[in-house]
């Protein structure tokens, strides 16, 4: 499986092509350059992280890939077609779980099925299976407010997966969770990704989370938001939590930190 993916990664036709993308927001105090000249090719089935401080444009870029925001200059294409609105086969997970309080866990997961008029019975099975897989089998008929933060975010992930999307965009999905729950969900996400071969773009500001999960990390800086360096992570899969204690992991961490430092991300340490 690992070999197959490497083959795909080195393929010629990228699944997602981000070419010279910039984003300028108009604000009352003048235009804000949120992202400048971002170029990146992503292969089908690849796990790519956008890693950087707040204001580096990582969420903006994710939204543009998801067709929720327009590019100011440049172009983004998915499977050869330019992005024009949210594409078919898209799943999104946000930092907030945005579960709907009036729906049960199962009904929340079924929301995309209802919105897209997909076959109800078939997806109900899939939703139930997914929720069981994420350890929520006993909570199908509970309401969101009865769950813990980690469980709620698991429901949000199931909701993104229920239509079996080929592209998963995740905007700091585990940013609001405690460290242990976060580790757990990192492993569960890796499992899902390895089994399904989805393309995942993962926004985070955690260096270790990015190294742990990604095939490649796109290191970014702010003011203006930009790509600095793209780092390939060469750990075999499946990765365990123990990988974080290896010297290689420390090397990657050091490298990212040094990139951040030389680009003024850690102002405090320099002062």
């Amino acid at each position: 499986m690992t070999m197959d993916r490497n083959e795909v990664v080195s393929g010629e036709n990228p699944h997602i092509r981000i070419q010279g993308v910039s984003k300028i927001y108009a604000s009352p105090r003048g235009d804000v350059l949120a992202l400048t000249d971002a170029t990146l090719d992503i292969q089908k089935g690849e796990f790519v992280s956008l890693l950087g401080p707040s204001g580096c444009g990582k969420s903006t870029l994710l939204k543009m890939v998801g067709g929720l925001d327009s590019v100011t200059t440049g172009a983004i294409s998915l499977a050869g077609a330019p992005i024009d609105g949210p594409p078919v086969g898209l799943g999104m997970v946000f930092q907030k779980d945005v579960l709907l309080d009036w729906r049960t866990v199962l009904q929340n997961v079924m929301l995309p099925v209802e919105l897209q008029n997909l076959d109800h019975a078939e997806h109900l099975d899939r939703a139930t299976t997914l929720l069981k897989l994420f350890g929520l089998g006993d909570f199908l008929d509970k309401h969101p407010w009865e769950l813990s933060g980690g469980m709620r975010q698991r429901v949000a992930i199931c909701r993104a997966l229920v239509t079996d999307p080929s592209l998963l965009l995740m905007d700091e999905p585990f940013g609001a969770l405690d460290a242990l729950t976060r580790d757990e969900l990192n492993l569960e996400l890796q499992d899902i990704w390895m089994r399904s071969g989805k393309t995942i773009i993962f926004v985070t500001h955690s260096i270790s989370e990015a190294i742990m999960l990604s095939d490649r990390i796109c290191v970014m800086a702010a003011r203006p938001g930009r790509f600095i360096e793209i780092i390939k992570i060469d750990f075999p899969r499946p990765r365990t939590l123990a990988v974080r204690e290896t010297p290689e992991f420390a090397d990657y961490t050091r490298r990212v930190r040094q990139i951040f430092e030389s680009n003024g991300v850690f102002q405090h340490e320099k002062a």
Partner: peptide, 17 residues
């Protein structure tokens, strides 16, 4: 929430739905 709006749009729901 803007996130709920984005979520709904990402699921390609019609305005009526």
């Amino acid at each position: 929430d803007t996130e709920i709006v984005d979520l709904g749009r990402s699921m390609r729901g019609s305005p009526l739905k």
